[in-house]
Deep mutational scan, measured.
Amino acid sequence: MPGGGPEMDDYMETLKDEEDALWENVECNRHMLSRYINPAKLTPYLRQCKVIDEQDEDEVLNAPMLPSKINRAGRLLDILHTKGQRGYVVFLESLEFYYPELYKLVTGKEPTRRFSTIVVEEGHEGLTHFLMNEVIKLQQQMKAKDLQRCELLARLRQLEDEKKQMTLTRVELLTFQERYYKMKEERDSYNDELVKVKDDNYNLAMRYAQLSEEKNMAVMRSRDLQLEIDQLKHRLNKMEEECKLERNQSLKLKNDIENRPKKEQVLELERENEMLKTKNQELQSIIQAGKRSLPDSDKAILDILEHDRKEALEDRQELVNRIYNLQEEARQAEELRDKYLEEKEDLELKCSTLGKDCEMYKHRMNTVMLQLEEVERERDQAFHSRDEAQTQYSQCLIEKDKYRKQIRELEEKNDEMRIEMVRREACIVNLESKLRRLSKDSNNLDQSLPRNLPVTIISQDFGDASPRTNGQEADDSSTSEESPEDSKYFLPYHPPQRRMNLKGIQLQRAKS
C-alpha cells in the first residue's frame, strides 16, 4: 500500500489531465453553448442521470443573480465542470439528445442517441419513463405552439383585415386629398384670375382717368384759346370803332377846312374895312368942321342928330352885343352839340362793343353748352356701355358659378359613389376574411389534438420509441430542437415537474 501511493497520485493526475482536456473543448465553445442552450431543457435529463440535484437545479433556474438565459447556462456549465468526467459525459449526452448541432460542434462527431448513462443509472424502465415524459412534454409544447400558431394566424388575419381596411381608408383619404388639391388648384386659379381682372380693371381705370385728364386739359386749352380769340375780336371791334371815330373827325375837319373863306376874300374885306374906317374919319372931320361953321339952329339939329346917332349907336351896340352873345351862345351850343355828338359816338361805340361782347359771350355760352351736351352725351354713352359690360360680366359670372356648381355637385356625387364603392369593397373584403377565418377555424378544430390522450396510444408510441432511437435521429431532433426563430415568436414553456403513473402502461404491456 505505501508503495502504491505514487502510482495512485500519477493516476489521479492523469485523470485530472484527461478531464481538463475534455472540458477544454467545452470551454472553447462556451460562448456558443451559453448563447443557445436552454438550461430548463437540460436539467431534467441531468437530474435523471443524478449529475445534479434539486438544489443545483433551483440555483440554475431560479437564482435572482442569474437574470438572463446566458448567465444560467454559464452557471450550469460551471456546476457540471465540478462534476468531473461524469458531468462531461452526461452533458454531451444531453447535447446529443437536445442540441445535435452543438454536440457536433463540441465533439466533431455525429449524434447517435445511445443514452448509456441513464440506462446504467435507471435501467430501461427509467429510460422509458424519461422518454415518455419527454414525449408528453413535446406534445404539450407542440399543442402550445399550435395554439400560439393559431392565435398568430388569427392575429395575422386580423392584421391583414386591418391592413385592407387601412388601405381602403388610405384610398378614401387619397380621394379626399386629391379632391382637396383640386379644389385648392381651382381656388388658386380663381385667385389668379381675380387678381388679373383687378389689374385689368385698375389699368382701365388709370387709362380712363388719364384720358379724362387729357380731355379736361384739352377742353381747358380750347376754352383759353376761345377766350383769347374773343379778346382779340373785342380788341378788333374796339379798334374798328376808334378808326371809324377818327375817320368821322377827319371828315369834319376836312369839311371845315373846305368851308373856310379864301385869302383873297379876307384881304378884300380888310380893304373894305380900311376904306370904311377912312371914310368914317373923313366924315367925322367934316362934321367937326361943320359944327364950327354952322348956326345955332343947325347946331341944335346936329345935337339932336348926334344924340339920335348916339342912341342909334347905343342901340346898335346893344344889338351887336346881343348878336355877339347870341353868337357866343350859338358857339357854345355848337360846342355842346359837338361834345354831345362825340359822347353819342362814344356811347354808340361802347354800345356796339357791348353788343359784340354780348354776342361773343352768347356764342361762347352756346359753345360751352354744346360742349357740355357733348360731354353729357359721352358720359351717358359711357355709363350705358359700362352698365352693359357689367350686366354681361355679371351674367357670365352667374353662368360660370352655375356651371361650377354643377361640376362641383357632379364631382361630389362621383366622390360619394367612389367612397360608397370603396366601403362596399371593404365590406366584401371583411365578409370574405370572416368566411375564410371561419373555414380555417373549423379546419383547425378538426385537426387539433385532444387534450387527454388514451393510455393505449401512449403505450403504442413508446413501443415504437426504441427503433426510432436507432434510425431516425433527424426526426427526433426536428421535433425536440428549438430554433432561434421559434424563440422569437413563441413563449418558452415550462412543464410541471411531476412523475407519471406507469401502472397503466405496465398492465397494457403485460396484456400485449
Rank of each mutant, 00 (worst) to 15 (best):
L80R: 02
T82M: 12
T43D: 06
E7C: 10
H31W: 11
A63D: 06
L15I: 14
G5I: 11
E59V: 05
E54P: 08
T112K: 15
D56C: 02
D78Q: 01
V51T: 09
K83W: 04
R75L: 05
R72S: 02
D78N: 00
C28Y: 04
L33R: 01
L92D: 15
T14L: 03
K137C: 01
L33S: 01
L61W: 00
L61N: 05
I70S: 05
D58P: 01
S116R: 05
G84K: 08
E57I: 06
K104T: 01
M32S: 07
N29D: 01
D58S: 13
S34D: 01
Y88D: 02
N62C: 03
M32V: 07
E59G: 00
H31R: 05
H81P: 03
Y88S: 09
C49V: 09
I52Q: 07
N62D: 06
L102I: 07
H31I: 02
E57G: 02
D20P: 07
N71S: 13
L92M: 08
A21P: 10
F115I: 15
L61M: 02
E54D: 10
L127N: 14
D146P: 08
T117N: 15
D9W: 12
L66W: 03
N62H: 06
G4K: 10
F115P: 15
C28Q: 04
W23T: 11
V135W: 09
P64A: 13
T82P: 04
P64V: 13
H129F: 11
M8A: 12
K41N: 11
M8K: 13
K50L: 10
K69N: 05
K83Y: 05
S116N: 03
R47K: 08
C49F: 15
I52L: 12
R114T: 10
D53K: 06
Q139C: 01
L15Y: 11
T117S: 15
M142L: 14
K50F: 12
I70D: 02
P39R: 01
L76H: 03
E101I: 00
L80N: 03
Y99T: 00
D17P: 11
P44S: 07
K137A: 14
D9Q: 15
A144P: 09
I79P: 03
I118M: 10
A40Q: 09
E54N: 09
T14Q: 06
E59R: 14
L138A: 06
Q55F: 13
L33I: 07
F130P: 01
E7T: 12
G126A: 10
P6N: 09
P64I: 04
L61P: 02
E19P: 09
C28V: 01
E27K: 01
D78E: 04
M8N: 11
F115V: 15
Y45M: 12
E122V: 05
V135M: 09
E27M: 04
V120G: 05
E122M: 02
I52F: 08
R114V: 14
T82A: 08
L127F: 13
N62F: 12
D146Y: 05
V120L: 05
